[in-house]
Design a protein around this nucleic acid. Sequence first.
DNA 1: AGTGTATATAACCTGACGGTTATATAAGGT
DNA 2: ACCTTATATAACCGTCAGGTTATATACACT
Lengths: 105, 105
Amino acid sequence: MDTFTAVADPTRRAMLDLLVKGERPAGDLVAAFPAISQPAVSKHLRVLRNAGLVSVRVHAQQRIYSLQPKALTELDAWIAKYKVFWSERLDALERHLSKKEEIEK
Amino acid sequence: MDTFTAVADPTRRAMLDLLVKGERPAGDLVAAFPAISQPAVSKHLRVLRNAGLVSVRVHAQQRIYSLQPKALTELDAWIAKYKVFWSERLDALERHLSKKEEIEK
DNA sequence: AGTGTATATAACCTGACGGTTATATAAGGT
DNA sequence: ACCTTATATAACCGTCAGGTTATATACACT
């Protein structure tokens, strides 16, 4: 599953939002999502792993998950193409508004 | 459908990639995706509309679609949270590498 | 060795997504 | 008025994603 699809799911985004604050064992994530079952969380983690968004480290019986930032650069690169466009548009909007202000003076 | 899900589909991303180059009537988009039918394209456009990623303007029988940059800022804002994290990590990697270089000298 | 703890996998179900064909809507041209 | 063009909607279908329960795996503890 690609990065975009992996990040499209709100539960997985919430998981990443937790992991950005620091690495966590799978159990912590299970506890953080009481609405869904342990296997469901485990499956989400597999998706994130396959997308390269997280990595796992084994510690005793625990699997410690940590965020893998590199994978998000792909997403960022895609958006970057549009940034030029939207900054232009927002600039244009701003110019339009300030012109309107001048007229209204 | 939210922005993330809208952008998760590769066909819709390709559509946005076209629209970033300038507004286009729906027909042009239909022509640009010969692999899928006209109704399929129309449905994708509806999803993009509902997500606020594009806007429509009526011109005779044509519907002219144009990119709506504002909606992508939501996505960008989400990624921004992670940028700090990954620049830290990449910096750390860089420091590690340059240290190694010094040792190897 | 046997039990408990932590996590992953298997098998299954349901709903939604992306596709299709057929049809409706609406504006233009003749 | 009628036909054509452009696009959207309706109805339907197969696949897959996300959920479940039940079970396997693997390490730790006594």
